[in-house]
């Protein structure tokens, strides 16, 4: 049986990812052990909380280098995905730089006095965090892949499917973007570069669509 390593670097709840893998009857281990992570068939980097402290924890656990050198499929979820980007505005931190994009705060933020005339009126401003179900579109394969087309993350997922989000920051669109969601502005709902994948949404909480996306990842 293949096994998936869920990286535990002290950022909280891994239970929902575990339960999702159980429902898929997938073998997994929750670990912070570099050797176990290196030998896993698949690696999931979850994460909730604040980006700069999550990055610090990853670094303190000595796992940043381990992750950068992985050659098997890696899936970052939410903060886990953000840590694979170049940087995050949250706590103004540098990240691992796999995905060629920056993570920025949702909603409009203007320095004092620079608010443009066409800014969204206060009444219809965005609630932050974005919490709930939003749709994904423009699903594609992504850059630097060698896998067969029919074995990709969004195989069997229709354009416009809803997935579950809880976040205040999101990665900008870039060449690695494989799915887009709009909340105030379009952002990368999912990214892919080579063996690295990431979703800003929570597939483990996205009903049957999320379950299918996780199953696709496990089949890569």
């Amino acid at each position: 049986m293949q096994h998936t390593a869920i990286i535990d670097y002290g950022t909280g709840n891994l239970r929902s990812v575990e339960n999702a893998l159980k429902r898929l009857n997938a073998g997994y281990v929750v670990t912070s052990d570099a050797a176990v992570i290196r030998s896993a068939d698949k690696v999931i980097l979850p994460g909730v909380g604040e980006a700069s402290s999550a990055m610090e924890k990853l670094h303190d656990a000595g796992l940043d280098e381990v992750i950068l050198n992985l050659t098997r499929p890696v899936l970052g979820i939410c903060i886990g995905m953000q840590l694979l980007c170049e940087s995050s505005e949250e706590g103004d931190t540098a990240c691992l730089g796999i995905f060629r994009t920056a993570v920025r705060r949702l909603g409009e933020t203007f320095p004092p006095g620079s608010r443009p005339d066409n800014a969204i009126p206060y009444k219809t401003r965005l609630k932050i965090p974005e919490m709930g179900w939003n749709s994904i579109r423009c699903l594609r394969t992504g850059t630097g892949g060698t896998d067969r087309e029919d074995r990709q993350l969004f195989n069997g997922i229709p354009d416009g499917s809803y997935v579950y989000y809880v976040h205040s920051y999101a990665p900008d669109i870039c060449e690695d973007t494989i799915a887009i969601t709009e909340y105030g502005r379009p952002f990368s709902a999912a990214l892919r570069r080579g063996n690295f994948f990431g979703t800003q949404f929570h597939p483990e909480k996205s009903g049957s669509i999320g379950q299918k996306i996780l199953a696709n990842f496990l089949e890569l």
Binding site: R15, R23, Y164, H202, S206
Partner: peptide, 8 residues
Amino acid sequence: IAEVVDIP
């Protein structure tokens, strides 16, 4: 419930 339910 957490084991069977795949929504928040």
